[in-house]
């Protein structure tokens, strides 16, 4: 639209710079993870898998991974069920006070995590649940459930409710309608929500530090606390693994979203 080549060049330069700023440092980490050096240095001497071996065979790292996976799966399970069910409840019933539910569901996204951490600490101290995996998983559920709720709600808002009415008119009762139509037609969104819930738990540091202490840390907490000590390249290897997981999840989410959108479009022409 009448823009000069100069403006276009500036535009692309800007995009490139911002992109570099956003992901450049992360890519440097991947490079560092193959270093043979004992300490962080530039440029690193390449190439070795030694830091991956440390990560794989060190019992303390393994312990952290196991704990992260355990807490993460439990939190994902709870957040996915509670969030999806609530999203269905608000989207497919005449419920007064839907806004209140919405505010409830979004609140954990905007309240600073340190408040949940200190508050959770004093609450869990009273309940004698400090260091408990279940307690930690519940707090991670609190942090993950808004994502599930928001993602599933917006998918439900986009899918035509008349497919559910159609199932009812064809002879399916309510539970069959939910089982055969509501859930499968929104499955991509539900899975996306679950992935986010897992990601949130798998990254959470602040609340986890307070509730698990340094005795039995999760993976990100272990990374976090090893950063305040001497920075060993093993952290780069751990980070690279996490980056790869992030890339896989991101592609998965992109795929799921396209899938859900295609379905929504199919119904709305």
């Amino acid at each position: 639209m009448g823009e000069t080549a100069n403006i276009r060049r500036i535009r692309y330069l800007l995009i490139a710079l911002v992109a570099l700023y956003l992901i450049g440092p992360t890519l440097v980490v991947i490079w560092l993870s193959f270093s043979t050096d004992e300490v962080l240095r530039f440029p690193p001497h390449l190439f070795s898998w030694r830091w991956y071996e440390v990560f794989l065979f060190d019992e303390r790292w393994n312990e952290a991974v196991r704990r992260s996976l355990l807490v993460g799966s439990l939190a994902t399970f709870l957040a996915t069920i509670i969030g999806s069910v609530a999203a269905f409840g608000t989207a497919r019933t005449r419920l007064p006070g839907k806004q209140i539910v919405e505010i409830f569901a979004i609140a954990p996204l905007v309240v600073p995590p340190i408040i949940l951490a200190t508050g959770g600490y004093s609450l869990f101290a009273k309940l004698d649940m400090i260091g408990s995996n279940i307690g930690l998983a519940i707090m991670h559920t609190v942090l993950g459930v808004p994502y599930v709720y928001l993602i599933v709600s917006s998918a439900l808002a986009r899918t035509d409710p008349s497919i559910e009415l159609a199932a009812l008119s064809l002879g399916a009762n309510r539970w069959r309608t939910i089982r055969d139509v509501s859930i499968p037609a929104n499955l991509p969104a539900i899975i996306t929500g679950a992935l986010f819930a897992f990601l949130i738990s798998f990254d959470e540091v602040v609340v986890t530090v307070f509730l698990s202490g340094s005795l039995a840390p999760t993976l990100p907490v272990r990374v976090f606390s090893s950063l305040s000590l001497a920075v060993s390249p093993v952290v780069a290897a751990v980070s690279t693994v996490q980056i790869i997981i992030a890339i896989v999840l991101m592609c998965l989410v992109g795929f799921l979203q396209r899938w859900q959108r295609r379905w929504a479009e199919a119904v709305a022409h």
Binding site: A86, R94, V101, V145, L165, L168
Partner: peptide, 22 residues
């Protein structure tokens, strides 16, 4: 109802785990 598959009591039941958790 139109666009409404579940009854109101079921609606309350479905949001209560979320409200309870939070």
């Amino acid at each position: 109802d139109r666009g409404v598959v579940l009854s109101q009591p079921i609606g309350f039941a479905s949001v209560s785990p979320l409200l309870l958790l939070l």
